[in-house]
Design a protein around this nucleic acid. Sequence first.
DNA 1: TACCGTACAGAACAGCGTTCGATAAACGAA
DNA 2: TTCGTTTATCGAACGCTGTTCTGTACGGTA
Lengths: 262, 262
Amino acid sequence: MTTDDGMSPASQTPASRAGRGRGGGRGAAGRQRASHSLEAVVAEAVALLDESGEPGLTFRALAARLGGGVGSIYWYVSSKDELLERAADSVLADVLAKTDHLGAGDDPIAEIREMAIAFYEATVGRPWLGAYFLQDTGTQTNGLMLYDRMGREVMRLDLTRRQQFDAVSAVMAYVVGVAADRGQDPPQEVRDGIVDRGAFVASFRDELRALDVDDFPFLHHIVDEFAAHDDAEQFRAGLDLMLAGLRLQAGSSSADTRAASD
Amino acid sequence: MTTDDGMSPASQTPASRAGRGRGGGRGAAGRQRASHSLEAVVAEAVALLDESGEPGLTFRALAARLGGGVGSIYWYVSSKDELLERAADSVLADVLAKTDHLGAGDDPIAEIREMAIAFYEATVGRPWLGAYFLQDTGTQTNGLMLYDRMGREVMRLDLTRRQQFDAVSAVMAYVVGVAADRGQDPPQEVRDGIVDRGAFVASFRDELRALDVDDFPFLHHIVDEFAAHDDAEQFRAGLDLMLAGLRLQAGSSSADTRAASD
DNA sequence: TACCGTACAGAACAGCGTTCGATAAACGAA
DNA sequence: TTCGTTTATCGAACGCTGTTCTGTACGGTA
C-alpha cells in the first residue's frame, strides 16, 4: 500500500546509485567488508539466472556470490522486481552493441530483420527474459533505445505514423513471444544438460504420435517437421512473414490510406 | 532431485483425478468437511488470478475460497506450477468454444485471423497467462487443440509442411508476445482501478516527451500515436502484417520451393 | 462389525523477500 | 587530529510462501 514514501534505503540516493561503487576493490589490503556496485549486482544476477533460471535467483544466493550480506543488495535495488527488470535490460546492452553498426543500409526492412535476430539471439537460453522487458521506462533505458533504433528504420518507410508505431510494436512482440514460448518447452533437466535434447524432442514426438489422428490431424501432419526443426530457423521464418507483410504495406503507397506523415 | 518417485498424493491416482469429485455438495445435510473437484480448484484459481494477479494466487487464499484446508489442494494438483498450467489451459476452453464454428469459410487465412483474435481477447486483462501456455502436453490439451485447429486452416493453403508448421507457430508466438508485453505496462494500481488509465497513459506520454529528441527521435515521432492508440487495434494491425506475409507465401505457388506436400 | 481406498484437514518445516538497527568506512570541516 | 555526517555493508528477525506429513473422516464392500 505504501506507494513511495521515499524512506527506503534504495530511494534515499536514487540518482547516485547508478555507476557508483568501486566494485572490485575486494582483496585490497586489510579490507573487512565487501564492496559492491550496481553493475556487479546486476551482472551476478544475470549469471545466476542463466545458470539456474528464475527460481535460482535469490537474494541469499546473490549475496553469497558477491561475498556479502543479503541486506547490501537493497542498497542498489529496491525489490526483486527491480532487480529482474535491470537484469533483463542489461542483456539488451549486448543487443545494442551488436546492432550499433546498423542503420546505414539501403533496405530498412533488412536492418530491422538484423535487429530482431540480434534481439532473439540474446533471448536464447534465457527463458526468464520474456516477462520483464519494457516494464519501467525509467530503469530500462536499453529497451527504449532498441525500440527507437528499430523505429528509426521504420521511419524510412512510406507509412503512416500509426503504421510505423504498430510495426515496431509487432516485431518486438513477436520476438518476446517466441522467447516466452521456447523458454518453456524444455521441462527442467534439459537446460542443465542432464537429459539429452535429442532424447527430449524424440519423446515429445512420440507423445504427439500417440494422440488420436482424428482429433489432431495437423499435429500428425507436421510431427516429422517438429522433430527436425531448428528454433532459430523457425523464428526467422515467422519474422520473414511479418516483414513481408510490412514490405507489402510500405510498397503499396496509396496516399489515401495515409494521414499527414510529417 | 527427486524426479518421480510416484509416492506423492497427487500421483497416487493420476488418472482418477480428472473429472472426479462431487463439487458443489457443500451444504448438503450435516456435512462437516468441504468437497472439491479439479474443476472447482482450477476455476477458483483463475478467479483469484483475475482479481489479484499472479502474486494473489496462494494456496492459503485458494483454500479459503474453497472453504477447505491447504493440503486438500494437493490432492488435485501436485504443485503450483501445475495449478498455473491448468489455469492457463482452462481459459483456452473459452477460446475453443468461441472458435468452434470456424473452419467452414472459404478463406483459411480469415479463419486463422478469427482464431488469433479470440485467443488474444482471452488474454486481455490476464497478464499471468503469457508464461504458462503450452508447457505440458499432458495436462494442457486445450492449447494443443487450438494449435491443431489453426493448423487445419493452414493445411488448406498451398504450402510446405515446414511452412505450415512455421506459420502456426509464428501466429501463436505473436499472440503470446503481445499478451506478455501488454500485461506489464500498467505498473500495479491501474489494473485495480485505483488510478485512472487515461492518467497513466498521459503520464507515460509526458515521460516520453521528457526524453532527449536526438536520442529518441522515433519515440518523439509517435508519442501522440501512443497516447491515442488502442491495444486491440494494434494487435490486429500486427496480426494483419503477418497474415499478409502468409497470404503472399501461399499465393506464390512456385512448386520448386515446396517439397512433397502429401 | 471390520476394513480399505478416497478425500480432506491443518500443523509443521524450510526457504523466500523484505525490514531494521547496528556499524564500519570515507570524507570534509573544525 | 578530532568530530560529525554521509555512504555503504551486514545479518538477525519477521511474515509469508510452497510443500510435506500425519491424522482422520467418509463411503462402499464383505
